[in-house]
Amino acid sequence: MLRSWQFWTVMAAIGALTGLFAFAFTTDPKIVPSPLVGRPALAFALTELNSGERLGLADLKGTPFLLNFWASWCVACRDEARLLEAAHRRWGASAERFRVIGIAVQDTPDAARKFARRFGKTYFLALDTAEGDISLNYGLYGVPESFFVGADGVVRHKQIGALTAEVIENQVTGMLDTAKATQ
């Protein structure tokens, strides 16, 4: 028969292991906490792929926006391409209450334009620098990745992997409601 201290040592070890397994199996490995969430969005300067229009963070003051990092070679980016365009047409194109901004990373202008034409993208598209300055500044793990930024310029949500219609709906309506409430 185990003595009392031996019994409790074994029980503590079993409890710790059970806790560890429970944590591992109930945690989604795709959800990686970003230190950027809850902090002001970081500055960027972009040039539109087709029109050459310039856009910086300062130009977006007071407007909630979605910063989507993508690439023409990225398969998962195809899944969300039409959802992003739909979000742009629903909240951005006519109402100008919300903006979708796509930044192609590790890509070429021609390949990015071809991809945009194929999926009918009409929102603001730009290329990251060859050095990946914006990607590294935003702590990218890969593509696609998206940042929802509120009207106050604070990052509300970071999505790793392809966006879904539900995530876009929830985030955009949430940001628009907050913007309306603070006006």
């Binding site: 990686v32 906490p33 970003s34 230190p35 702590g139």
Partner: peptide, 10 residues
Amino acid sequence: FFVSRYGEWI
């Protein structure tokens, strides 16, 4: 700099 972008994970 990298910790401020990626967190301690990096």
